[in-house]
C-alpha cells in the first residue's frame, strides 16, 4: 500500500475545508474569522498540491504559490481593516455590527 492515496488526501482536504467554513460561520470575532479563512485557503492549496502530485505536473505547486500570495494579500488587508476598526472605538471586533457602517 502506498503511503497516501489521492482519495485520502481529498478526504483530508474536504474535512479541512469544512472545519474552516464552520469557523467562519460560528465565530463573531473578525480575527478568528480571518484565521478560519486561512484554513479554508490551505484546504484549497492542499487540493492543488495533491492534484499536481497525482498527475505529476508542476502546475499544482504553481497554483499553490498563487494561493500563498493571495493569502498574504488577504491577511494583510484584513488585519489592516481590523486595526482600523479597533482604532475607531469598536474594540469588540464584532462581525455582526459591521452592517451599521453603511454609506
Amino acid at each position: 500500500m502506498p503511503p497516501t492515496t489521492f482519495n485520502a488526501v481529498l478526504l483530508l482536504s474536504s474535512f479541512l475545508f469544512t472545519i474552516g467554513l464552520t469557523g467562519v460561520l460560528i465565530r463573531r470575532n473578525l480575527l478568528f474569522m480571518l484565521m478560519a479563512l486561512d484554513i479554508m485557503l490551505n484546504a484549497a492549496a492542499l487540493l492543488f498540491v495533491a492534484a499536481g502530485a497525482h498527475w505529476h505536473d508542476a502546475t499544482g505547486q504553481v497554483m499553490f504559490l498563487m494561493i500563498l500570495a493571495l493569502a498574504a494579500a488577504e491577511t494583510a488587508v484584513g488585519l489592516a481593516i481590523i486595526l482600523a476598526l479597533h482604532a475607531r472605538g469598536r474594540p469588540s471586533l464584532d462581525a455582526d455590527t459591521g452592517n451599521l457602517l453603511r454609506g
Binding site: 467562519v24 463573531r28 462581525a95
Partner: peptide, 13 residues
C-alpha cells in the same frame, strides 16, 4: 439583506 457577513456566508454554504 442585513449586511451581516456571516449570514451571507451561511447562505452561500
Amino acid at each position: 439583506q442585513n449586511g451581516r457577513v456571516r449570514w451571507y456566508a451561511a447562505w452561500i454554504v
